[in-house]
């Protein structure tokens, strides 16, 4: 691993978990891909090629600078540009919580991809619960925004997400719950601050 990759995974531990689940040579669609760092890594480390989807102008330009194929599209209007099962893997990393129409997007991800990998900050982490109990909206490493300037609109817990998967008929194939980059196996919804899932459709 290069120094840049170390830095990337230190800053975004979910990406290391996601990368492990992407098979070498897989075709990948990364929704909300930011500056394309994950796609760049997946290509360099696993020869997994793909496209990023990003709405923010500056991030799109950063992708181009990083030589990552990026499509400036709005995830809220669905994935109409992509055909059924056209990707091995559709990734939504730390973006779920910013999406308005989550159910639609989850369905679309599994229409377009053979599997979906989703990561999100766990609102069930004890520090979030404690802050709410003390009468404040949580601010933490995984939830860094103040309530008035957050891009997040749909925060959820590990349990909430699994309920939604059940409702949508989404099969959870693997799960990694993390805190400070380390896996949490005991009481994940309480002790984990970041959750990563690998899902498949029915």
């Amino acid at each position: 691993m290069t120094e840049a990759e170390h830095a990337l995974f230190a800053a975004r531990p979910d990406l290391a978990a996601i990368a492990r689940w992407v098979a070498p040579g897989a075709s990948v669609l990364d929704l909300g891909c930011g500056d394309g760092a994950l796609l760049k890594y997946l290509w360099e480390a696993r020869k997994a090629a793909g496209y990023g989807v990003e709405i923010d102008d500056a991030e799109v330009i950063a992708c181009i600078r990083n030589d990552v194929s990026v499509l400036q599209l709005d995830l809220e209007s669905g994935l109409a540009t992509f055909r059924d099962h056209s990707f091995d893997c559709v990734i939504l990393s730390e973006t779920l919580q910013t999406i308005h129409r989550i159910e639609q997007l989850m369905r679309e991800m599994l229409r377009v991809g053979r599997q979906a990998i989703v990561s999100f900050p766990n609102f069930g982490h004890w520090s979030a619960r404690l802050q709410v109990m003390l009468g404040r909206m949580p601010v933490s490493k995984t939830l860094p925004h103040d309530w008035y300037n957050t891009p997040n609109v749909h925060l959820c817990t590990v349990t909430d997400f699994e309920d939604l998967c059940r409702k949508l008929g989404v099969k959870i194939r693997e799960r990694a719950v993390l805190h400070e980059g380390r896996p949490v196996s005991l009481l994940p919804n309480l002790l984990g601050s970041l959750a990563v899932y690998r899902c498949e459709g029915r």
């Binding site: 799109v60 181009i64 499509l71 400036q72 599209l73 540009t81 992509f82 055909r83 056209s86």
Partner: peptide, 21 residues
């Protein structure tokens, strides 16, 4: 333009797409 992009994706061509406001 998105029609173009879609057809290029179908062919797995290297493509980036900018839709500027």
């Amino acid at each position: 333009s998105r029609e173009m992009v879609r057809a290029l994706l179908d062919n797995r061509r290297i493509v980036s797409y900018l839709e500027l406001d």
